[in-house]
Structure formats: structure tokens, C-alpha cells
Amino acid sequence: MERRRSLPDVLAGGVFVLIGGAFVVGSLGYELGTPLRMGPGAFPLLVGATVAALGLAIVVKGLIAGEVIAFGPIPWRAIAVITLALLFFGFAVRRLGFVPTSAVTALLTTLASSRVRLLTAVAVAAGLTVASTLIFIVGLQMRIPLWGSWLGF
């Protein structure tokens, strides 16, 4: 039988082993209990071990007879910028307020595309900020201050 190593399979399996293993280790810190009264740690331990075992099976299969998947390019810039934009939104929305946070998040996100020009990005960000303020604050009456405490309002 032809052996095909598959990096994506090994990587996917590795992710499962890592997460499953982390939950197993974490759940050992909680009370396991008895079958009659299962503690908070029992179910995650069981499920975490299953995830890790399945991940291991995927790794082994990936080393022996893996799926051939074209990996393709990785958009590092988009990954970094979009992650940053989301983290910024979560962190800043209460501190800076809705309008500045939305504007910065939108501007950051537009920059994820490698073909965007700065002027377009600014225009899109401004338009989206106005639209989201109208929809969520005016239309849906969301209770988020427009300008946050960090700006001295």
C-alpha cells in the first residue's frame, strides 16, 4: 500500500490532541465524583480524552494514509488584522464608546485586503460607522454609550 504523508491531517489531529489534552488536564483539577453523583470534572474528562484519542487516530492516519489536501496560501495579513480588530472591539467598546471603536475596528478590517487603497478604506470605515450607529443605536436602541469614559464624556 502506498504511504502518503498528509501535513494537514497531522496538523488537524495535533489540534484535537492539544485541545482534548488541555481539557483532560484541566478537568483533573475538578472533583470527579462517582457514577451516581458525577462531579464537575467527570464529563469533560471523558469527552476530552475522546477528543485526544480521535486526534491521535487522525495523526496516525495522516502519517500512514492521509487525505491529500491542497493547503494553499495563508493570508497572514488578514489573519493578524482581523484578529486585532476583534480584540480591539471587545477591549475598547466600553472604554472608548461605540463610535470611535466601530470606526477603528472597521478601518482595521478594511486593511485586511491587500488590494485596498487608504482612501477607500477610510471611506468604507466612515460609511460603516454611520450605518452601524444608525442601525444598532438609533434603530435597535442598543444601550452602549456613543462616546466612552476614556474620551472624557
Partner: peptide
Amino acid sequence: QVLFPMII
């Protein structure tokens, strides 16, 4: 280029 920032 407008849609994906809007979605995010």
C-alpha cells in the same frame, strides 16, 4: 471590500 468589513 465593503462587505467583509461590514460582516466583521
